[in-house]
C-alpha cells in the first residue's frame, strides 16, 4: 500500500513554525481535558507564570467550544447521539515572548458573517471598552440552551495581546474555512 500522504511535511511545518502540538478531529470534552492537562503540565514545567497558563488555557477552551458548537463538520460520538464539531486546534510559540493558540474549522456562510462582524467589532475596542462590553454581556446577556453565553470571543480578546487574527476562505461547497490566531504574552 502506498499513498502520497507526507508525514514529514506535517512534521516540518509544525517544527518550522514552532508548533508545540496540534490536534484535528472531533473536539470532545475529553479531548479538551487531555489538551488542557498537556498544556498545563508543559507550561508549568517551563516555569511559566500560572496566570499566563490560565490565559492560554482560557483561549484554547473558548476556541474549542466554538468549534464544538459551530463547526458544520460534525460527528456523532457516543450513545448520547450528540453531534460534536470537528476542527483543528493547537498551540505554538512562534516568537520567544508569545504563545500562539490557533484554531481552524468549517462554518456556514451565515455563521462566518456573524463571527466576522463580531471579530471586527471586538478588535476595534479599546481595553476599557472591551472590559465594559464583556461585563455588560456577562450581566445582561442570557445563556442559550446549548450553554452559549455570547462571551467567548470577548474573553479571548481580553486574555490575548494583539488584535485577534482571522481569515475566512470560501470553499467549493459554499461553506467557509474559518481560522483564528490568538497571541498570548509569555510574561505580563
Amino acid at each position: 500500500m502506498s499513498s502520497n500522504f507526507d508525514v514529514h511535511a506535517i512534521y516540518r511545518l509544525m517544527h518550522d513554525n514552532h508548533i508545540q502540538f496540534s490536534y484535528k478531529g472531533p473536539i470532545t470534552q475529553e479531548v479538551l481535558i487531555s489538551l488542557g492537562d498537556t498544556i498545563k503540565e508543559k507550561l508549568h514545567r517551563e516555569d511559566c507564570d500560572a496566570k499566563v497558563v490560565r490565559r492560554v488555557f482560557s483561549v484554547l477552551v473558548e476556541a474549542a467550544h466554538n468549534i464544538l458548537k459551530y463547526s458544520t463538520e460534525k460527528t456523532y460520538m457516543d450513545e448520547s447521539n450528540k453531534a460534536t464539531g470537528i476542527g483543528l486546534i493547537g498551540i505554538g510559540k512562534t516568537e520567544a515572548d508569545l504563545f500562539l493558540v490557533f484554531s481552524g474549522n468549517i462554518v456556514s456562510p451565515g455563521e462566518a458573517k456573524a463571527v466576522e462582524e463580531k471579530l471586527v467589532h471586538i478588535n476595534q475596542l479599546t481595553r476599557d471598552e472591551l472590559n465594559k462590553s464583556y461585563q455588560q454581556q456577562l450581566k445582561q446577556g442570557t445563556i442559550a440552551s446549548d450553554g452559549s453565553a455570547g462571551l467567548g470571543l470577548f474573553e479571548v480578546a481580553r486574555k490575548s495581546d494583539r488584535p485577534m487574527e482571522y481569515n475566512f476562505s470560501p470553499l467549493e461547497d459554499g461553506n467557509v474555512f474559518f481560522e483564528l490566531k490568538i497571541y498570548v504574552k509569555v510574561e505580563d
Partner: peptide, 17 residues
Amino acid sequence: FDFVSTSSKKMLTDIIG
C-alpha cells in the same frame, strides 16, 4: 476556582444575582 470558562462565568454571574 482555578479555571472557569465563559459559559460557567455566565452561570456564576446569574447565581450572584
